[in-house]
Every structure is written in C-alpha cells, then in structure tokens.
C-alpha cells in the first residue's frame, strides 16, 4: 500500500498561510491602534481648534508646538487622532454585528437544517418576509425607533446580515445531514445532540467562520455607508464613514480629511478579506 508522504501533508496544511499571516498582521495592527486610541490619542479627537483649520499633513500648528502628522480637518481637529478614534466605532460595530449575525444565523441554520419540518417552515417564512424588505429600510427603521447608538447600529446591521449566514448554514447542514456518517452515528446509538454537536457543527463551522470573517469587511463598509448618509453614531464622535462624508466638501482644499479614513477602511477590509481567504484555504481539509 502506498501512503501519503509526510511532506504532502505538511504542504497542504501550509496552503493559505501567507495570506492568513498578512491578514492577521493587518487586522491585528489596526485593532491594536484602535484599542490604543481608547486610552491615548495625540490630541483630543473632538476638540476644535479654529486657528489650525485644514492644515495639510506633516504641518505644525499656529502655536508652533502642535504637529499634525495627517493634517487637520475643517474644524482644526487632529486628523490622526480622529482616524484612530473613528476606528473604535467602526471596528466595534463590525465585530459586534458579525458576532450577532453568526450566532443567530448559525444556530437557527443548523437547527432548521437538521430538524426541518415545522421549525424550518416557520423560520423560512420569516426569512422570506425579511428578505423582501430592503436592508436599508430595516436599518433606518431600527435606528429611528431606538436612536442611533453603537449597540443599536450593530443590532440593525446584524439583522440585515444574519440571513445570509442562516441560509448558508442551513444549506450546508442539509448536505452534511444527508451524508452517511450521521446515519452511522445514529446506528451506533448517538442522539440528536451528539450528531449536531460532534458532527454537524464542526463540519459546518469552518465555512461559517470563513464567511463571517469576510462579512466583517462588508459590515465595515456598510457602517461607513450609514455614517456617510448621516445615519451612524451621532456627532461629534468620529467614525470613518462620516469623516469621509464630511471631508467630501473640502476635497479641493483638504483631500486628507477624507482620504485617510477611507484608506483605513480599505486597509481593514483588505486585511479581513485576506484573513478570510487564508482561513478558507487552511480549514479546507478535503
């Protein structure tokens, strides 16, 4: 009999590692900087300083002491501090929303896929109904009902995103449930709990983790979009989305106001997507 070389095994386990590493470094760095901003930013991100309005990057303030690495915005607030602090809202909302939608979507998805019948029909009906309502409408509705705080925004976004997780989990569970190994477990004397937790969830989870990671990118963009539309967390707190939208007016005189937060969003989304792709390659054992 011919057995696989150890070399082969190591090779496929290594697949996807460069991407995974790059993604982890980018995301880790951004998260670290954002975490740092909670305790320290170069200047107060929300304190206006009219004498230092719209200074370009790498310039010194009027008092000759302040140094603005990424310039200042239309109210003379330090751009670097605002980009750092703006990440708090964006990152927190993105992670919270994805966590919520993964938990909601995965639990319901596995249950509907495995038990089927009545539960599946009822949940399926709600999913269809919700799917026919535009996502933006749902979020606007939630925001007007409960006011726009970080938590409400996260819940609103997860409400619109859990559907895709649910569908994917359910579809994957249906596939796995039909496979003979679940039957084998049942014949061996396993109950529903054993089959769900020992077989279905481990088999379904890999793709959910990958999809969830990729969803973080989408959520960051969605949050930025909402802030851009003025539906995000209220002023004067900085969020990347609103910094981009506010800076738009000053594009000709101060491009840096919106370009740097936009870069931050792009970098984080790229990092998260790398992470997701890398995970997919690594978790795929077939």
């Amino acid at each position: 009999m011919v057995w696989l070389d150890n070399k082969d095994v190591v090779w496929y386990k290594k697949k996807g590692v460069p991407k995974l590493l790059a993604g982890a470094v980018i995301v880790g760095l951004i998260v670290l900087i954002v975490l740092l901003s909670i305790v320290w930013t170069p200047y107060d991100p929300n304190l206006p300083n009219v004498s230092d309005r719209l200074l370009p990057p790498l310039s010194t303030g009027h008092n000759g002491q302040s140094y603005y690495l990424l310039g200042t915005d239309q109210l003379g607030r330090d751009n670097l501090s605002r980009v750092m602090a703006g990440g708090q809202v964006s990152v927190l909302i993105a992670f919270l929303a994805v966590l919520l939608s993964v938990v909601m979507g995965a639990v319901l998805g596995v249950m509907c896929g495995y038990f089927g019948k009545t539960l599946d029909n009822i949940v399926g009906m709600f999913v269809e109904i919700q799917h026919s309502i535009p996502m933006l409408l749902i979020i606007v509705m939630v925001l007007t009902l409960f006011g726009s705080s970080t938590v409400v925004l996260a819940v609103g976004l997860s409400l619109s995103e859990w559907l895709s997780i649910f569908r994917q989990t359910r579809a994957k569970t249906l596939v796995e449930r039909k496979k003979d190994y679940t039957l084998a477990a049942r014949v061996m004397g396993a109950g529903d709990g054993w089959i769900v937790f020992r077989h279905l969830i481990p088999n379904v989870m890999a793709s959910i983790i990958v999809y969830g990671t990729l969803l973080i990118g989408t959520t960051i963009l969605a949050e930025a979009g909402l802030s851009f539309l003025g539906l995000g967390v209220q002023r004067p707190y900085a969020t990347w989305g609103r910094m981009i939208s506010d800076g738009q007016t000053y594009m000709a005189t101060g491009w840096w106001v919106s370009v740097f937060p936009a870069l931050a969003v792009a970098l984080l989304v790229i990092g998260v997507n790398f992470l997701g792709d890398g995970l997919r390659a690594k978790l795929k054992m077939e």
């Binding site: 496979k179 084998a184 061996m188 004397g189």
Partner: peptide
Amino acid sequence: KDIQLIFQDPYSSLDQRMTVEQIVGEPFMI
C-alpha cells in the same frame, strides 16, 4: 449495538474532520 451498518460510499460515511482514532473510537465515546 448488536446491529451495525457498513456503507456503500466510503467517502460520505466517514466524518472528514475526524481522525481515524476518533472515527473508530466514536462508538465507545457514545
């Protein structure tokens, strides 16, 4: 316990996320 099945499809009948030890040992675990 007294009646067991051997399956037609050797691919779908083994959980691909388990090691051989886990697969063969699963009945003991259950």
